[in-house]
């Protein structure tokens, strides 16, 4: 079968981008969306053109590197699937697929379909951890954690940080990503001592990064490859409300967002 890929091409953040349409032969339905791009890139390079830059690594749906919009849906039409696992059998001969990068001011564009998601790392830096240095741990079974609690925590912890939630949200909100980490650690007894501080700091960072507000409509969870539920956002709101009250006496700071790629190099 043949498909047309209409892809956003943009050399760098400062240049003007545009859509370019490329016809691609799909060998069989088991081919993934990214393998389709591989085939296209081989062709482009054969013609001396620059290949399409796209982010990818594990190609088994867990690293969270890949992701772009396909016909207006983050990660494409198949639920709970990253683009690396999206096989071409879900499309028909002659389909036109519009591939567009995540669009958010908190994910500045790098090149073609590649964006900068370091804002997510900074949200984790702000408090997405349990402050326990190596060597401090009691025996693994010292604190019992009920199966249901462990399962709930795992539901939230399954987030792969791909950014689809932000990309799909009409408001560009990072509530699902932030909520998932706050919920994962807040649910577990190990995360309780820092629950308030974590929520307040992570929410502050999320706001400083310039993400939009959550209007509880659920577009994020609809595209989430790991189907992180909307209730993680409620969990964040609860922890934040309680935390903001209990931590009202404490100073909260945030990390200045960085968008350049200069690491002290001359």
């Amino acid at each position: 079968m043949k498909v047309k890929l209409t892809i956003w091409r943009q050399k760098n953040p400062d240049s003007k981008g545009q859509f370019i349409t490329y016809p691609v032969d799909v060998v069989n339905g088991e081919m993934s969306m990214l393998e389709c791009l591989d085939v296209l890139n081989e062709t482009l390079m054969g013609r001396g053109e620059e290949p399409v830059a796209f982010e990818h690594d594990c190609r088994e749906g867990i690293c969270g590197s890949c992701g772009f919009m396909i016909n207006g849906i983050a990660h494409g039409p198949l639920p709970a699937t990253t683009v690396c696992q999206l096989t071409m059998r879900h499309f028909k001969d002659g389909d036109e697929l519009v591939l567009e990068p995540w669009r958010s001011r908190s994910f500045p564009l790098v090149k073609d379909l590649v964006v900068d998601r370091r804002s997510f790392d900074r949200i984790i830096q702000a408090g997405g951890y349990v402050s326990v240095s190596t060597g401090n741990a009691p025996d693994g079974n010292a604190i019992p954690v009920g199966k249901e609690i462990a399962d709930r925590a795992m539901d939230a912890a399954a987030c792969i940080g791909c950014g689809a939630c932000v990309a799909a949200c009409p408001n560009g909100s990072a509530a699902l990503f932030t909520g998932a980490k706050i919920a994962h650690l807040g649910i577990l007894p190990q995360g309780k001592p820092e629950q308030d501080r974590r929520a307040v700091r992570m929410v502050a960072q999320m706001n400083v990064e310039g993400f939009g507000s959550c209007t509880n409509i659920g577009e994020c969870t609809g595209v989430c490859p790991k189907e992180i539920p909307l209730e993680e956002i409620a969990r964040m709101n609860r922890d934040y409300l309680l935390g903001a009250w209990r931590e009202r006496g404490n100073v909260v700071t945030a990390i200045a967002p960085v968008t350049d790629w200069n690491f002290g190099e001359k």
């Binding site: 951890y129 349990v130 741990a137 693994g140 604190i143 009920g146 462990a150 190990q190």
Partner: peptide, 10 residues
């Protein structure tokens, strides 16, 4: 890892 909040099966 348990202390860090890794949600091992229980």
């Amino acid at each position: 890892c348990v202390a860090q909040g890794v949600p091992f099966a229980r």
